[in-house]
Amino acid sequence: MSARANILRSSAAHAILIAYTILALYPVFLIVINSMKSRRAIFNEPLALPTRETFDLVGFHTVLEQGNFLLYFQNSLIVTLASLFLVLLFGAMAAFALAEYRFRGNLLMGLYLALGIMIPIRLGTVAILEIMVAANLVNTLTSLVLVYTAQGLPLAVFILAEFMRQVSDDLKNAARIDGLSEYRIFFTIALPLVRPALATVAVFTMIPIWNDLWFPLILAPSDATKTLTLGSQIFLGQYVTNWNAVLAALTLAIFPVVVLYLIFSRQLIRGITRGAVK
């Protein structure tokens, strides 16, 4: 391939990617810049950056005075991280068992667990609520952690089992000959080798948990256990005509997710690009 064709190809690639990046980020950017403007400026010049005349933080004042966002944020963080940990640990263990050992009912067990990928756990909401009432777990973060762990496990097992099958048999057998227990093999050989897959599963598990509206509303709507998503939904509903407050609340809701994502995505990208899956 000639050098010139190469340059053409790579600039075309950059042009497409830049265009798509703008499409993905501009709507979010627009909300963030307008959250810092006065009401008049929001409507007169929505596309302009805030200037000295139009800069106004009145929306944020309203949000911070009315909402209890720090507590909501903390609740969301606890629920998400606890569920994520349980999903990854239990999911990887089950995936390892399914991928590694032949036993009667292996296929059936795999199908049983995979069933949950297609079942929206919401279909069982009424019965779940009954269980949580019986166990006295309503309005606790524990109830949410339990539900989200159950929700995340099937997909985690499904994806991780695919990757566990690719872990070299020779490596594990060598470890067995050296006398390592099956538990050690799982924790010291299989788990580190599927780390890129773990990172991917983590991102896919974390997002729906953080963003869920349904179960916080039904299982833990009390003020002490509200998650950030539920808190902002209620706030947005109440202040729907107050554009400053709505834009500020959206900005505050966007911010922690993006920060959380940037922390995790570095791990995700490192995991993927190391290519240990090969």
Binding site: M93, L113, I119, L123, G124, I131, L146, T149
Partner: peptide, 18 residues
């Protein structure tokens, strides 16, 4: 041991209510 935690939580919170 590998299967139990996942299967138990999944069965109790997802399959039975479903």
């Amino acid at each position: 041991v590998f299967l139990a935690p996942a299967v138990l939580i999944y069965t109790a919170i997802m399959i039975i209510p479903l």
